[in-house]
Design a protein around this nucleic acid. Structure first.
Lengths: 192, 192
DNA sequence: GTCTATACGATGATAGAC
DNA sequence: GTCTATCATCGTATAGAC
């Protein structure tokens, strides 16, 4: 692997665990086995490297979303698959965690992060609209709000898991959300 | 205000905005108008001061919860009040934000944070159980999961608001959650 | 209780040789 | 492309005078 790739790969991992502010060029160099020379030859500096890394993470996560939703399953089953997807609650969300840092908001780093959540919203809206059309979901549900709720439960699950140092908080949160959603699926008795 | 109080007050504010890691004794001194002498006279160091500050925040937030839930309203109305409570989405949760920092987890700071969320869980469980007893909520709902979902939606609302730099994400998330909960309230037709 | 002086490692980056 | 040397500044804390 080239020095550049090595720097990027290491930075992606370190960003996940320590965040942006607590990350130092020296640490990245040590972990990736590269030196000053490579670091500043390939990137303008810490922010530049981090931006490239976050861009990659954002892209990877959008692709993962896409393949998760690109199935023949019924809309609400895709929602269920998303919600109940396995997650490392204690480690936190690769992007959501960064959004909590002051040094990230008001920085170029926020854009690829916002882009991911924007895409998540888009794909969830599309899926729920389809669920409505196919009669899986009641017509009078406010889709935008429901989408924000679904995305929030996942992000909040990470926060609770970390705050309580208990990975199960994540599982309980998404299960609670799915429980409600499932009951919301149009009942036979509601048929027109 | 005494130097000690001034240090604590300033630290609580700075912790909210910048978090623990990005906070420096020098900054606290500058913002609070105190000097080295006062800082290290009243506290052992940065972590000690931060712990006192977070303890106070945790206590304040638990008291706020308590007074929010100490009403004669029906259980589900108290849940509604909690969910739809006004929140500064862009600023983030004073405690949830800290839980995302690596320097906080695995530190004495995590305890007052966990304590708050533990208390929140307790109070929500109690309220939902009461809602069941009073027939406001269907009997077969899993309370623990629902509670984790409610707490998560709030925390996730903060994350989404910051990630998208849009305070409305918080409002949409809690509204989406309340919308589902309201539909879950036991319908007249379900009466035994 | 508060002040100033001082210390030492870490941070983020530049300079120039190879 | 990569290395080593160097730098100004910040972060966290101690020492001792007042």
């Amino acid at each position: 692997m080239s020095s550049r790739d090595s720097l990027l790969k290491t930075t992606k991992e370190l960003l996940w665990d320590r965040g942006y502010d607590a990350l130092s060029p020296r640490t990245i160099q040590a972990e990736s086995g590269t030196g000053q020379g490579s670091f500043y030859h390939h990137f303008r500096g810490k922010e530049d490297l981090a931006r490239h890394a976050v861009n990659e993470v954002s892209k990877e996560m959008r692709e993962a979303l896409q393949s998760l939703f690109a199935t023949d399953k019924k809309p609400m089953d895709r929602i269920r698959d998303y919600l109940l997807n396995s997650r490392a609650g204690l480690r936190g969300c690769r992007l959501g965690k960064l959004a909590q840092e002051e040094a990230v908001v008001g920085n170029s780093l926020i854009h690829p992060i916002a882009e991911y959540f924007s895409y998540l919203e888009e794909i969830l809206v599309r899926t729920l609209e389809q669920a409505k059309q196919e009669g899986e979901l009641e017509q009078d549900i406010a889709v935008e709000a429901l989408v924000a709720m679904i995305a929030s439960v996942v992000q909040g699950g990470y926060v609770l898991s970390r705050a309580r140092q208990n990975p199960q908080q994540m599982d309980m949160a998404v299960n609670g959300a799915w429980d409600l959603l499932e009951r919301m699926k149009r009942r036979p008795s509601d048929d027109v």
